[in-house]
Write a protein that binds this DNA or RNA. Sequence first.
DNA 1: AAATATTTGTCCGTATGTATC
DNA 2: TGATACATACGGACAAATATT
Lengths: 227, 227
Amino acid sequence: MKNLKTKKLYLQVYDELRHYILKNNLKPGDKIPTEMELSQVLGVSRNVLREAIKTLEILGVVSSKPGVGMIVNAFSPSSLSTCMFLNLIDDRGDQFRQSQEVRKVLEIGFAQQCFDSITDNQISRMEDCVNAMQSFEEYEDFYDADAYFHRCMYENLDNKMLIAFLDSAWECDRSFRAKVVEDKALRIKKHSDICIALRERHYDAFMASLVFHFTYKYKSAGTREEE
Amino acid sequence: MKNLKTKKLYLQVYDELRHYILKNNLKPGDKIPTEMELSQVLGVSRNVLREAIKTLEILGVVSSKPGVGMIVNAFSPSSLSTCMFLNLIDDRGDQFRQSQEVRKVLEIGFAQQCFDSITDNQISRMEDCVNAMQSFEEYEDFYDADAYFHRCMYENLDNKMLIAFLDSAWECDRSFRAKVVEDKALRIKKHSDICIALRERHYDAFMASLVFHFTYKYKSAGTREEE
DNA sequence: AAATATTTGTCCGTATGTATC
DNA sequence: TGATACATACGGACAAATATT
């Protein structure tokens, strides 16, 4: 196992252990080999093994007791921890659709609260984002401005869980966003419309612009490659 | 630090490090003390320290390079990993409201898709949950049935991200559910109504029962403290 | 450029506490 | 009452990568 790339050992071991649990379809209560065994099988020191396995324990995936050993926890089948233990989702090609759907439902579902609570300061910063978009050339810069725009909208709702979900959905769609056909002008206009509606305190226009914002056209429909 | 309770050292250290980062309001790029320093300050061996700190690295909170040290990552500000690194949020009393709001928006927002895609098999299992609820005495059993009921509803949407979010929101509100005044009968009726509406393929009734499901009365109304 | 110091990466050995038989 | 198996925790040592002088 030693010379596999230059990746750090404990990172490799962490992945190995995850795969071990998933591949063998271990269920709650099932035992995991002892530290000695695992370190020998994987060909690493017990220290390295522990650095990886303690992560699994802290994540709540396994439990360990001296004199007993380690067992798989009843895991639930998600919860943030297990969901990120599974590293979530296999079919990456579908993530874009999933994250889009979730974002759309969340943003539109909280639109009323957003509209009621938003401040001039927030709107100003959103307008700044729109202006910044017009001068950006780099895709990443553009994307960051877009992300910040949406975070501004909902930051005043006093709901950190919402922000957390929006951000993680956002992050998932980041790498697949390139597949969307949408020219700069349109994308800017979508966000500009939202700002205008908010400035004018016009609820219906706000909702309409938000719904419109979540309509996309895909590149050459049906040819999206999958691995 | 040695005899503090019987809690394992690496778990304590993990919490200490998290608090260290949050308390000092460290920003992306900021340096973290060396392993030597930290292990001395915390009074633990370098091994134990690493078991804790490698968790933070695997979670993507920090990065480490030989010869350089460790820095805080640009964290995003969420993504599932950082969100669970924050664990999430301090004001636990508010989590219940937050998770309730998010669940409500998500479940109602996806109600149409649920209604269109749901199968008889799903409905049957939901009905089984309702029946099981009536025989359960233990709060935990009751709660598990409730959780499974909702997971059934949306499992056919082919959106794992939604399921993951619902489950983690659910888990957050689990420990605070006790604060809700709601007798068994009402809680069962709420779920029963949803089943009936689905069986009859009656969309409006389905939506109404779902909305009603998310109305709660809190203990001692008006005394919920806020900061 | 080259030597030196710093810091993480990795391994080993050993002692202790705890659960099981 | 041991004897065994296991995780917990400590300390030391050296290699590898990087920074500093």
